[in-house]
């Protein structure tokens, strides 16, 4: 189930137990997450200046190694690295080869021969970033920018950063995660991050076919009707419905989904007055959110993008600069 547990040690940490790679939210300590969120707060101000650049990673070389297309993630990592004055190499690899594991490590060895310092890896296979971390050892570090349905830790960190930045401590908020929980690495990482930060009530809501029943055992409150799940919520996190999965038996149609689980202005009124609406993007307008909600004052989807940049700066600075 968790391939990185099978080898020796924790590939996320160095021999002294310090954070060396960011591979998944699982295994991070509360203090480490809070430190990353705190430094992201200070990086947020850099983006408001005329000169949006600070010198701390001057002379370092980072590689954006993307085996899957993801414009927003790739460009925010690239901008984050550039605002820290690092040099960035962008490599997009078509992942059609049957021997992806081999070709990934071959590609990486060639890049290591060019003396790069760190990798930001997006790969369709779960465990790819862990494989790379083990391969690299002390030679370079890795940030997992999404591996299959497994993990995408900077997304969860930017989500909790956004909630904390706008609403205050996570430990006082009721958070609702809405949609395809089963296939979502975003949902899984977010649930982990929220629990580590002491969120008092995490609710998930979606069709029975898209919510894994074992979540109930993890202290998560499971709902299959939207209205009761929204009552008293401070945060509503709508997951992206992936159209490519809609031909399966799990859901009749997107119209049917919207009718039962789409977040409309009327339904949002069941939540607390100042509740905020998040979405990891890209959004299917009229499916996860009605246009009125998506463009309304409670949607903070573009703030998530701005915060994602600052959060990724904090992660890169942390891994590239050693630990305090």
């Amino acid at each position: 189930m968790m391939p990185w547990r099978m080898g020796e040690g924790d590939p996320q940490r160095d021999a002294e137990g310090r954070l060396r790679n960011l591979l998944a939210i699982e295994g991070l300590r509360e203090g480490e997450i809070l430190e990353i969120l705190d430094s992201a707060e200070s990086f947020l101000g850099i983006g408001e200046r005329t000169v949006k650049k600070i010198p701390i990673l001057r002379g370092r070389t980072l590689v954006n190694l993307f085996y899957e297309n993801s414009t927003r993630t790739r460009s925010t990592f690239e901008l984050a690295a550039k605002r820290l004055s690092a040099d960035v190499l962008n490599i997009a690899v078509a992942s059609s080869s049957a021997s992806k594991g081999e070709s990934l490590l071959d590609t990486v060895d060639n890049l290591l021969a060019m003396q790069v310092d760190g990798f930001i890896l997006r790969h369709p296979e779960a465990g790819a970033a862990h494989l790379l971390a083990r391969h690299l050892g002390e030679r370079a570090w890795v940030v997992n920018a999404g591996d299959g349905q497994h993990a995408h830790p900077t997304q969860a960190l930017l989500d909790v950063f956004t909630i904390r930045h706008l609403l205050g401590p996570i430990s006082e908020r009721v958070v609702v995660i809405l949609g395809d929980i089963l296939h979502s690495r975003v949902a899984r990482a977010l649930i982990h991050a929220l629990s580590i930060l002491g969120c008092p009530q995490i609710r998930v809501v979606g069709p029975r076919t898209l919510v894994p029943p074992e979540l109930q055992g993890l202290g998560v409150h499971v709902f299959h009707e939207l209205e009761p799940a929204l009552t008293g919520a401070n945060v509503v996190y709508a997951l992206r419905m992936q159209r490519e999965r809609m031909d399966s038996q799990r859901l009749p149609s997107l119209e049917e989904y919207h009718r039962r689980f789409g977040l409309t202005a009327a339904r949002l009124r069941l939540a607390e007055d100042n509740a905020v609406v998040l979405h990891p993007g890209p959004m299917n307008r009229g499916v996860e959110l009605s246009a009125e909600v998506a463009d309304g004052p409670q949607a903070i989807i573009l703030e998530q993008v701005t915060h994602g940049l600052a959060l990724r700066m904090a992660v890169l600075a942390r891994l590239a600069g050693g630990n305090p």
Binding site: D38, S42, G45, I54, P324
Partner: peptide, 19 residues
């Protein structure tokens, strides 16, 4: 803090205030 010349030795202090 972001302009210190010893960043690569001491790393990032998490409680940097925003200028």
């Amino acid at each position: 803090s972001f302009y210190r010349d010893d960043f690569s030795r001491v790393g990032l202090h998490p409680e940097v205030k925003a200028s």
